[in-house]
Design a protein around this nucleic acid. Structure first.
Lengths: 339, 339
DNA sequence: ATGAAAGCGCTAACAA
DNA sequence: TTGTTAGCGCTTTCAT
């Protein structure tokens, strides 16, 4: 082990060192180390190289490799908020795993929605010769595509920009809303309230469309008075309780889990039990909340992990091209005990 | 713009192209592009180079730069769970910002606590010639240092390994527990219950020590019967309510916000009001919960962002060396309306 | 079956 | 003030 220079500091071991140690040329070392397909290397030589690698603790220099081969195994991921929510984290996670699977590593940048930070981040990625960039937002919305993004392959994740021509991977809000409503219908409810958000967004319109579609499929008439607007947080859900109770609904589909949490409180205050008196389903599947409410909340998951993973696949051209570049990801039902 | 080859695809513009266009040598280009300190370049030449850069849309190749200069501006961050919690996200965010500030970019890897993934991640980082690695966990605990980590500069974030000699940046649990308790004492409480976790951890012992220390400072005797063990989730808090009420405490310090959330439910069921009947303070400052409980929860924040940022500073040798390589980060009180 | 040599895009002495 | 010349560590023809 006396020759080991691989640890902590000191000059790193290079191919040249291996070549010398094994008494071969660097070309040969390159061939055996990378296990090149059409490389005719004698078994004995191969052996010697491997031994030298082992002995000196050689580790390939990815930077040199990228430069030389002209390839680069980087993929950039710019996110507007790694921080605020667990959601963005899941997108990163999915992208990470999928990228890794294909031999790529992720260059992550958080921009906090700051224009300058965004430009810097993209510039930095471009300088690192990324294969492409995933541009993601923590909640589903339409965005204005930052100019520098056009200089490389990019796919939008959890957001879209009509007219930009960029592929976009987004959750299927309508299917999600429909799924949520169907959970309620399936358990016998007919009079179903829908606490929808007041924030204009794909979620607002999509989930509503899904709600209506489910109702229609079930042959129950759409009653406008059953959709109750509320700010998409606990407070909104709490305040909407009055309207929910007044509506005579036996079940409610909440725009998200936080709203459901507020509703739980409102119901409890009125001595109403979930799900005996009223069934409720949420949206998002925000673990900390949904899984630990009493009773645990049945909800529909926002497929963040899948969004990230699919984004990578689209970027790499692995997923087959889809309709107008829009890739809808399914929002599955997560059944717990509130229905 | 006819010469612009910088966009989407096609051969990238290199320094050589700029040199040719500006009629100078690549060395000169390198000098003006990097604004080298001791470089005497004529104003007129400088101008020509800049124009060529502009015209051709030149962008430096970070990989080549790193290779050539032998430096590398990468820092690796391996996390056991980007996903599960918003916490890890904050660590990344802090590390990100701080690294960026010093001209470094983060190579993030999620391991899901999987040994193999961990080794792969570290190997990949080493291959990319990272300046060093931040090894972080999503909850504060002692860890076994993965062997390959010893081959580079590494700092532990939100975890530690006694005897490893590695610097560790961790939250100051004791100070945090003390702070939480003092919030209660400051508002006049003497009989303060402490719902502690049942999970052996630095949090369990540290926060308890802080609780006792605050009591002692205030001259109130420590009453063992006031510390109530509970699983560190909503369910635990809910179940602990009986004991809390029985103890006659007028205030309770909960091991974390989720426990506080469960306690809120338990209290509400018994018709007890927060904070009129009993004051409560949490720990973690888990936004989704703490800020939206009714009433909003006063708590103590786990400084994840700071942990990440400090980790980078320690790695880069910016922060002054501290006691035995352990860097304690403050857990500040976040005042809301539950006290 | 193996090696020599050129070159990836850039930096860094050292000349001129 | 600017250009020449070596590399950085690796890949990749093309010889041998």
């Amino acid at each position: 082990m006396i020759k080991d220079r691989s640890s902590k500091h000191g000059a790193p071991v290079t191919m040249k060192d291996i070549a010398k140690e094994a008494g071969v040329s660097v070309a040969t070392v390159s061939h055996v180390v990378n296990n090149k397909p059409g490389a005719r290397i004698g078994e004995e030589t191969r052996q010697r190289v491997h031994e030298a690698v082992e002995l000196l603790g050689y580790r390939t220099n990815a930077l040199a490799k990228n430069l030389s081969s002209g390839s680069s195994r980087f993929i950039g991921l710019v996110a507007d908020a790694i921080a605020t929510t667990p959601f963005a984290g899941q997108i990163i996670h999915g992208a990470q795993d999928e990228a890794w699977k294909h031999g790529y590593v992720l260059l992550v940048a958080n921009t906090d929605g700051n224009q300058a930070a965004e430009s810097d981040a993209i510039a930095m990625m471009l300088e690192h010769q990324v294969r492409g960039i995933l541009y993601s937002t923590w909640y589903h919305r339409e965005i204005e595509v930052p100019d520098p993004l056009l200089q490389t392959d990019t796919v939008l994740v959890n957001c879209f920009s009509t007219g930009s021509g960029l592929p976009a991977v987004v959750p299927d809000e309508e299917q999600g809303g429909k799924t949520a409503t169907q959970e309620l219908i399936a358990s016998g409810h007919q009079r179903i309230a829908f606490i929808n958000t007041t924030t204009p967004s794909p979620a607002l319109t999509g989930r509503l469309a899904g709600y209506r579609s489910a109702l229609e499929d079930a042959g129950v008439a759409y009653d406008k008075s059953l959709v109750i607007p509320a700010t998409p947080e606990q407070e909104g859900g709490y305040e909407a309780t009055t309207a929910v109770v007044a509506s005579g609904a036996t079940a409610v589909f909440c725009h998200n889990d936080r709203v459901a949490m507020g509703l739980y409180d409102g119901l409890r205050v009125r001595g109403l039990d979930v799900p005996t008196d009223v069934s409720v389903v949420g949206f998002d599947n925000q673990e900390v909340i949904a899984a630990h409410l009493r009773p645990p909340l049945t909800t529909v998951a926002l497929p963040h992990y899948e969004l990230g993973a699919a984004g990578i696949r689209v970027l790499l051209g692995i997923d087959p091209e889809q309709d107008k570049g829009t890739y809808l990801i399914d929002c599955p039902a997560i059944r717990r005990q509130s229905v």
